[in-house]
Design a protein around this nucleic acid. Sequence first.
DNA 1: CACCATAGAGACCCGTCACA
DNA 2: TGTGACGGGTCTCTATGGTG
Length: 447
Amino acid sequence: MRTDVLKLKEDGRFNGVHLTPEELELLQHLHEFKSIHARNVHKYYEITSNGRRKGNMVTNRLAKLVASGILFQVNDKEPKREIFRPVNYAYRLGVRGIEVLANRGVFSHDDIESKKKYSYLVNIPTLHNMAINSLFMEVYRLMWERGESFALLNVRSNRGENHELIDSISKGRELQPIIPDWIYETEQRIICLEVDSGSQTLGTIENKIARYNLLANKSSKPITVFFSVGLLNGADGESRSRDRRVASIKETLKESIEWADGLEIIATPSNRAPKILHKLISRQSAIGRLQMKNKANQWIMHANKNSPAEFTFSISQNDLVSQKLTIEDQYDLDLLAEIRSPENMKIGVLLFMEEGSLFSYQRARANVKRIVTRIYETTNASLKTSLFLIYENAEAAANDVVALNPKCEIIISSLDEVKAPTREDGVYRPLATKVATPFTRSEGNIL
DNA sequence: CACCATAGAGACCCGTCACA
DNA sequence: TGTGACGGGTCTCTATGGTG
């Protein structure tokens, strides 16, 4: 017998109903989102039932909640329409749902009447809002699978305009107010979500980032701006243009930009957004420069240990290269490696990369330029120097959009791959996925 | 009189089906 | 995805009557 359900009685207007804790939480999300597309409500039930409830079972349950006044169903049916069009359904809080939340202290009892009065204005979510909500649900799924919750992680999830940071800035009038599509606030950072359908000009994006930069200067907590590009989550037809859009957002930022302390910018295609966002939400602290150097060092060690004897990977002792390429600024490389085989030798400029990170991208871009201008153009060509972009895992390495022109050799690798470098056939392949053109990659030898 | 055990009625839950 | 209908199963409420 469940003792954690909230029991509501039949009251003349509405049927009685028992609400589970998960359903009460759903009501809170519904309060924040104002309305949620039926598809996403179904997703929520599927997640919280560990996949047991789906399809009609959920529909039935929702009908129950509607009959008991907890939810209200909205749709975009049109009375007379000859052309068939699938009907969209969405749910918002019903009158009793509003009362339940007030009783639980989500908002004050004084607000009940106005909320009831204006709830009819809430309609089917727009595509844009649906995308924000879909992303929310996918992050929720990842959290659920790991036994996490917003409460446990101490994360607040809010509509952008409801956040006091945005409030205080708008009041001061020092800034044209900027309202994120959504805000996730963790103990460590404030994540401002921007869902990008590609309709804004790059100038607008640039302007937005500039304002976030100012905002970050005023905020006591580090700010992460998260661009999720694309409205449809799984659709592949979209993916090519999505990658290009991500690339141009990343390219927007000039190298000379002065980053505010604690400002971090992420740009990613929407299909990768849930994983990256979840990592940001659940991760306790950001990766600092020392850790990046450490990761690069790990890569060298694992690569050396797991490669056949004729290959050696070591930290470079070459002073000449080191003097030319090590520049102590924000784009500085993590480590210089030396890779040797009996016949060959190559210098690797190692950067630890985080998927989606604009900062990582800028470092990569700056280091390509450094290799070209400081090595290729000023020393004799016998010294081969390549840029190595090292990711935490193979998935991140494969999916990050790094649309660079390979003016020098750019090799994509990951810690995963050097930890377990042999494939099924037992043949060691020096892992070398190379950037062929900004949007294509090829396989090749490491030397 | 306060308290407890019990049993039946009704409320609610869940999954399934056909069909729109 | 939705609606409406079905039916078995569980839980809750309440009336009733016995007991110390």
